[in-house]
Design a protein around this nucleic acid. Structure first.
Lengths: 206, 206
DNA sequence: ATAGTGTGATAACGAGTGTTGTCAATATTG
DNA sequence: CAATATTGACAACACTCGTTATCACACTAT
């Protein structure tokens, strides 16, 4: 029995979408406070003040919700990075710095998103697959958008992929150390050093 | 009631140690086949043909077993890398290549160890803390052993730490992609490229 | 051989899991 | 107002979890 008519002024599909967003938002909360282990259909529903019925209305599975949650964060990062790229001249160093800074901005201003994308996504089966796919996508996007192949003598796309993965993984590790307080660096210095290492790593390939 | 005398020819403490090792070995199996979610006191005991009593004989907690498991793998990698370093001339490039190749050798020959240290350790609370500590230790070891500070003009130890984290995270990402089949590269090419990127990233810091 | 120790199988406990269903209250429609 | 759709609270199902206890059997020691 699927709802079709308006309720309290809002149409049915909009209500569904609101509930779906609430679940994703709550998943972000739960991931951040209780970790992957603290995420369950019941815990999320309780926190979102919804009943399990509405969970299964939007998601088949707990994994599906988690994947949707990660995807939401990842999309936000990608969009932010792409916007930054478009607003800046076409030098590799400048573009790299803009992309890094934009990506860092997203996770730095919302700790939940940082844990979701840097921590939770790493350990759990389906989430990890998703993560790997996303990282590979980012890598390809980097290769194309930053013209890695022509600029750095990376003859083969396979080498370029490996390079891009290296840059992503390295940046993620440093960013997580900074955000978790293990490494104290200002945003400016962090972005500077990451940019320098990106350039250096690519330059080392020639 | 703690056992004190021999049984079937083996003394009590040796039996305890054997059981402990069996549990760690089985944890490695479970992590690899069923992922973090498939690890429980019961599942591990069943697979190790031991009863829960013997689990609590050696470990207080499931987390304690997991940490011990990760530590075992990490120690093996460290030992292998250090041995390789000692057997090779003192050029940075040669030493880096030797360390990378040795570390890769451990995880490449036992897929269970790869998933344990690259995947499982990333997602779960206590395991992640452990992982972060270990990576930081490796980083410091790198800084000292490879003389990062003097060789690459990394004036401050903080910058050196960030660099070391970057190298570790990047290498882990690429290695995992290779081991999971997403990226096809020969061991020689992989080690070559990683070495080159390590050098480049550090060189980019001057 | 007899007493005592080590082992392995199994049960029990309360709690939490995913999932489906029921039922009264509330809002919308005719 | 009357009929119906939507919501929220809650129960029920079978299952697994961590943890502790029980009991018969295998082994060791005296």
């Amino acid at each position: 029995m699927v709802a079709t008519r308006a309720y309290r002024g809002v149409p049915a599909d909009e209500r569904r979408e609101l509930r779906r967003q609430a679940l994703i938002e709550t998943a972000l909360d739960c991931l951040h406070t209780d970790g992957l282990a603290g995420v369950s259909v019941r815990s999320i529903c309780a926190r979102a003040r919804l009943t399990p019925r509405y969970f299964y209305e939007s998601f088949e599975d707990l994994d599906q919700l988690l994947v949707a949650t990660i995807d939401a964060v990842v999309d936000e990062i990608a969009q932010s990075a792409l916007a930054a790229l478009a607003a800046v001249p076409d030098t590799f160093e400048v573009q790299a710095r803009a992309a890094i800074d934009a990506g860092y901005g997203v996770v730095a201003t919302d700790a939940r998103k940082a844990t979701a994308v840097l921590v939770a996504a790493a350990g759990h089966g389906p989430l990890r697959e998703r993560r790997n796919k996303v990282i590979t996508d980012y890598a390809d996007l980097m290769i194309d958008h930053l013209s890695l192949l022509s600029s750095f003598g990376l003859a083969k796309r396979r080498e370029a992929r490996a390079s891009a993965l290296f840059l992503m993984g390295g940046a993620a590790e440093v960013i997580e150390a900074v955000l978790s307080g293990q490494l104290r660096m200002s945003r400016a210095r962090l972005v500077d050093q990451l940019t320098a290492m990106w350039l250096g790593a690519l330059g080392g390939m020639g």
